[in-house]
Design a protein around this nucleic acid. Structure first.
Length: 804
RNA sequence: GCAGUUGUGGCGGAAUUGGCAUACGCGCUAGACUAAGGAUCUAGUCCGGGAUAACUGGGUGCGGGUUCAAGUCCCGCCAACUGCACCA
């Protein structure tokens, strides 16, 4: 009888063997496969079982690819700039570099517990000056390319984090990180011109094998729309207002115009009679927070007293102000067609503004409109020379018609805004810019990078919009790289996204002091073939990385313009009742104890077994007993059969081929939870076979090789126990033969009127008549004197007799 | 409000193209081994009726439909989760 399985002994043994002799070797001949994890922020809380899941999935996939003959690139690193370390520093006076280093060493130990094939020679750390030198270098290159620019404007400001935020970091008016309500603050900011890449970022999504959900989120975020800008003259003045519309076909139906309260012309449009009301409305809007403004269900507004001239028909239409028009989208002003837009309709109803229908469905004009007709299908009416046209056709043609007539032009609009790139915090990459009174903003010369983050006495953000760096005169005062005169450094730092936007490029050449990455290595080892991580970065990190990659492609650093060919979002592991694991909820489950009690292999398999990898799963510790038992039974089965030296039998060969086919298919389709259940089923079958005499060696070997990506330690140990010298990971993924797995006998169901009444063994090649005759004989009593209306036989599957 | 995802036993979840619903595992019940069992092994476990059986009725969120046959396809709802949310 085999000795039982001691997970500790086995895992420690192989861990130390792999350390000396890693299993993932590059012989220079194999094709590469780059399987990347979203690198972690080294938090002081350590990892929980949810973090493990993604890393297990990526390791299983990496090892599977390895067994299929690939040289797998599977690196790990640290996204280590960011607020928690800085907040910890503020509270405890410990330099973020010190607490970060401590956290990294703890998390690294936890990650090593996973037993993954990470190549630690490739490790990167975004806070390492040798790394952020290149983060700064990219910024300088962007500056030189005109993609980084300074602008003073009201930006999103988190009063709790005391820093400005990018649009992507504001979720429903709240800070993505801390949840505080975001306010506006007027600040001079560094911006990245991501909007210049809007079309490419949108169009290139087609190239990517990504979840549709993420593609859609990016598509919506970029928010491209086609339409026209139309100029309306202000009646009696020498001014005109340009509006943006996607529905220039409805121009004849424009009965009023609305400007955002922040529109530069807004205040000036008031008349002596309306001035007071207009000023008050503008003031009220300015003090409303984003959240309040979005929550206003009923539309508000004020008439300015001025009129505009609709250029298509010279009608005078009133100009209103309302906060339902956004200042920073389009031109901040709209023409309003209440008959064909819900919001305009609501507004017109409330303020008794005329409604003119210009599109008629089936040519019928509605007498008393009760709601706007928003579809672009129907015939034009009340539209002068456009009458009778199809609105769908006109919608496409109108922009050019307007352009030809000289009162507007065809345009494209985006929701995407430029990226607010300055942070008023300490623990980030200093923006490598010097402000010279004469030369303006001058980049730090590339050969002087990295520009080191200096020591400070206080990490506390000032809250005034300056970073703590601004207080360090010795660092701030410098000379202009251009003219040599005294100058001041830029005090702001970069957002945490800066380093994570390109880190995956650095792994493959992390010791290069001359280049971000050598073009040779980039061409050979990049881009990423499979990227695995949570869905929370759908429009943040994943959008920024694509932007950076496209820029680096444009300046010739890399030869590809999309970083991640395939993306997989693993579901979240939650605590009981689907509650997100968090320290404050006290429902965090650490992997450490489970590894101790059940072993790494058991936890790895359980992480897969909890549910479909793409869906969220509730964690229940108890289930891990099941996989632990499975591994023990597998262990015993292999050793028992191996002792018996069982010969191949028809049954065991068939089982082998079926098992290989089944497991391979499930792995290929990324159905990792059913890979595990499949192993359990085949293991049960093998145990049954074992009772009859044993499982042949080739079948055992196939099972061990296939189990090795999931449970690498136990697989290596069993592989060795079967008498092999080398590592199981030097083997090839087993192949199957369709012929060898064919059953010639099969049990099929016999149904009467679709209900199963009996089962019967048939020869799969038996002719239909024979099967039906047999089936009817078996069902004779049940059919009785019923009349048989129809007889169905689906070969090898089912017999159904329809009886009346 | 719009879009997407999900809904199957006490629980986590299986179910290529429509073809025996509930595989696999947890939990539970009974038994074996044992000084002991939170170890291991064996048997059972969708719900109801039937004495344990044979047998029988129902059953995949709800209501319809297509089909010899529906968890799966079609139409209409409901609920939960996620994303977007006055983007003109």
């Amino acid at each position: 009888m085999a000795v039982s399985y001691n997970h500790k002994e086995v895992e420690e043994k192989w861990r130390s063997i792999w350390e000396k002799d890693p299993v993932n070797k590059d012989d220079g001949k194999k094709p590469k496969y780059y399987c990347l994890d979203m690198f972690p922020y080294p938090s002081g809380n350590g990892l929980h079982v949810g973090h493990w899941r993604g890393y297990v999935i990526s390791d299983v996939w990496s090892r599977y690819k390895m067994l299929n003959g690939y040289h797998v690139i599977h690196p790990m690193g640290w996204d280590a700039f960011g607020l928690p370390a800085e907040n910890y520093a503020i509270k405890n006076g410990v330099h973020p570099a010190i607490s970060t280093a401590a956290n990294i060493s703890n998390i690294k130990r936890q990650i090593q517990d996973i037993g993954a094939i990470y190549d630690w020679d490739m490790e990167v750390n975004t806070t390492d000056p040798e790394f952020y030198k290149w983060t700064q270098w990219i910024f300088v290159k962007m500056f030189k390319a005109g993609l980084a620019y300074e602008k003073e404007m009201p930006i999103n400001w988190c009063p709790s984090c005391k820093t400005g935020l990018a649009n992507e970091e504001v979720v429903n008016g709240h800070c993505e990180r801390c949840g505080a309500e975001v306010t506006k603050k007027n600040l001079k900011q560094w911006m990245l011109r991501i909007t210049k890449y809007a079309d490419r970022l949108l169009d290139d999504l087609d190239k990517l094998d990504w979840p549709e959900k993420v593609k859609k989120m990016q598509t919506d975020w970029i928010g491209r729309s086609y339409g026209a800008e139309v100029d309306f003259k202000v009646d009696g003045r020498d001014e005109s207002i340009t509006v943006y519309t996607t529905r220039p076909d409805t121009l004849y139906g424009a009965t009023f115009m609305v400007l955002a309260p922040e529109h530069p012309l807004a205040a000036g449009l008031s008349t002596p009679e309306t001035k007071e009301a207009v000023d008050k409305y503008i003031y009220d809007a300015s003090v409303k927070s984003n959240v309040d403004r979005l929550q206003g269900k009923e539309k508000t507004g004020v008439f300015t007293g001025s009129y505009a001239i609709n250029p298509i028909n010279n009608e005078k239409i009133p100009i209103w102000l309302s906060d339902y028009v956004l200042a920073d989208y389009g031109t901040g002003a709209i023409m309003c067609v209440p008959a064909h837009d819900d919001r305009d309709f609501e507004f017109a109803k409330k303020f008794n503004i005329p409604i003119i229908q210009v599109i008629a469905k089936d040519g019928v004009e509605i007498v008393d409109m009760e709601e706007a007709y928003t579809e672009a299908s129907g015939t034009m009416i009340n539209s002068g020379e456009w009458n009778g046209m199809e609105s769908a056709v006109l919608k496409k043609e109108a922009p050019l018609m307007i352009e030809k007539r000289g009162f507007g032009k065809k345009t494209v609009n985006y929701k995407l805004r430029d990226w607010v790139f300055s942070r008023q915090r300490y623990w980030g990459e200093p923006i490598p810019i010097v402000h010279c009174p004469d030369c303006g903003a001058v980049p730090v010369p590339e050969e002087e990078l990295p520009l080191l983050l200096p020591e400070v006495e206080s990490y506390e953000p000032t809250g005034t919009g300056e970073s703590p760096l601004a207080a360090i005169d010795s660092w701030m005062n410098t000379t202009c790289p251009c003219c040599g005169k005294p100058a001041r450094r830029e005090a702001n730092t970069m957002p945490q996204w800066a380093g994570s936007s390109w880190y995956f490029l650095r792994y493959v050449d992390n010791k290069n002091t001359e280049e971000l990455v050598s073009r040779e290595k980039a061409d050979k080892l990049l881009p990423v073939d499979m990227y695995i991580g949570g869905v929370e970065h759908a429009v943040l990190h994943l959008l920024y990385s694509r932007f950076y990659t496209k820029f680096l492609y444009d300046i010739g650093v890399v030869g590809f313009d999309e970083p991640f060919m395939k993306l997989f979002n693993q579901g979240m592991i939650t605590g009981k009742n689907g509650i997100k694991m968090s320290k404050s909820k006290g429902n965090v489950i650490s992997p450490d104890e489970l590894v101790e009690n059940y072993g790494c292999d058991s936890l790895r398999i359980y992480e897969l077994f909890v549910g479909p990898p793409e869906l969220d799963s509730e964690w229940d510790d108890r289930g891990i007993d099941g996989v632990y038992r499975f591994l023990n039974r597998f262990w015993k089965m292999v050793l028992d059969s191996s002792e018996k030296n069982a010969p191949e039998t028809a049954e065991s060969v068939k089982l082998r081929h079926k098992m290989i086919a089944d497991i391979t298919q499930r792995l290929e389709s990324f159905s990792l939870n059913t890979v595990v259940s499949g192993f359990m089923e085949y293991n049960n079958s093998m145990i049954e076979l074992g009772k009859k005499g044993g499982v042949d060696k080739a079948t055992l070997e196939a099972a061990i090789i296939m189990l090795s990506p999931l449970a690498p330690h136990i697989a290596e140990e069993l592989w060795q126990k079967l008498g092999h010298e080398g590592s199981v990971f030097d083997e090839k993924w087993p192949e199957y033969d369709e012929e060898a797995m064919k059953d010639n006998e099969k049990e099929i169901a016999l149904q009467i009127n679709g209900k199963t009444r009996a089962v019967m063994n048939i020869n799969v090649d038996a002719p239909k008549d024979e099967v039906l005759t047999q089936a009817k004989a078996l069902l004779k009593e049940r059919i009785g004197d019923g009349r048989i209306v129809k007889e169905i036989y689906v070969p090898g599957k089912i017999v159904n007799i329809v009886v009346k």
